[in-house]
Structures are given as C-alpha cells and as structure tokens.
Simulated assay, not measured.
Amino acid sequence: MNCYDCHQAGTPTAAVAVCRTCGAALCPDHLKVSTQEIHRQEGMGLSTSRQPARRLTCPTCHDAEHRF
C-alpha cells in the first residue's frame, strides 16, 4: 500500500500506518503521532490510565482536530 498524500503529489511511497480517523495510508513523513488519555469508569468516578494511548493520524485530520 502507498501513502495517499505522496500519491496525490505524484511520488509513490510505501505506507507504514493508517490514519485512525479517515483511513488514509501514511508514510513516515506524513504520519502525525500524538497521545490521548484513556479514562475508564471506576466506582463513583473516572480513572485515568497511567500511560496515554498512541494516536496516529494524517496531517489533514490532525490539523482539523487541533486548530479551532
């Protein structure tokens, strides 16, 4: 599978991941890695995981989620 953004630019590049939001294939140059806290219901409140989850997105989805 090739990176969608590289394909749009006319340069086929092997993909190493898939955007969790839109499903586009991504090469290392177009991959955005961030973290997300995981909350679980525990008793009468919430418990936050000690280690945040890894979140892989494309530049388009990353910008849409972080720019208001």
Results as ranks from 00 to 15, higher is better:
1 M>Q: 15
4 Y>P: 00
5 D>Y: 15
5 D>Q: 14
5 D>N: 15
6 C>N: 02
7 H>L: 14
8 Q>C: 11
8 Q>M: 12
10 G>R: 02
11 T>S: 10
11 T>G: 00
13 T>G: 04
14 A>P: 05
17 A>G: 04
17 A>D: 13
18 V>S: 11
19 C>S: 05
20 R>V: 11
20 R>S: 12
20 R>N: 09
21 T>E: 14
21 T>M: 09
21 T>Y: 07
21 T>W: 08
22 C>D: 12
22 C>L: 03
22 C>A: 03
23 G>F: 01
24 A>D: 12
25 A>D: 11
26 L>R: 06
26 L>A: 04
27 C>Q: 03
27 C>E: 04
27 C>Y: 01
28 P>I: 05
28 P>C: 02
28 P>E: 04
29 D>I: 01
32 K>V: 09
33 V>F: 01
34 S>G: 14
34 S>T: 15
35 T>Y: 07
35 T>W: 06
36 Q>H: 09
36 Q>V: 11
38 I>G: 02
39 H>L: 11
39 H>G: 02
39 H>Y: 11
40 R>W: 08
40 R>H: 09
41 Q>K: 13
41 Q>H: 10
42 E>R: 07
42 E>S: 04
43 G>L: 04
44 M>F: 10
44 M>P: 09
45 G>P: 00
45 G>N: 03
46 L>N: 08
47 S>Y: 08
47 S>C: 01
48 T>S: 08
48 T>G: 03
49 S>P: 00
49 S>H: 02
50 R>T: 13
50 R>F: 06
50 R>E: 14
52 P>W: 02
53 A>K: 06
53 A>Q: 07
54 R>Q: 11
55 R>K: 12
55 R>H: 11
56 L>A: 07
56 L>I: 10
56 L>D: 15
57 T>W: 04
58 C>K: 02
59 P>N: 00
60 T>D: 08
61 C>V: 05
61 C>E: 05
64 A>K: 10
64 A>Q: 13
64 A>C: 07
65 E>Q: 14
66 H>W: 15
66 H>L: 15
66 H>P: 12
68 F>R: 12
68 F>I: 07
68 F>D: 10
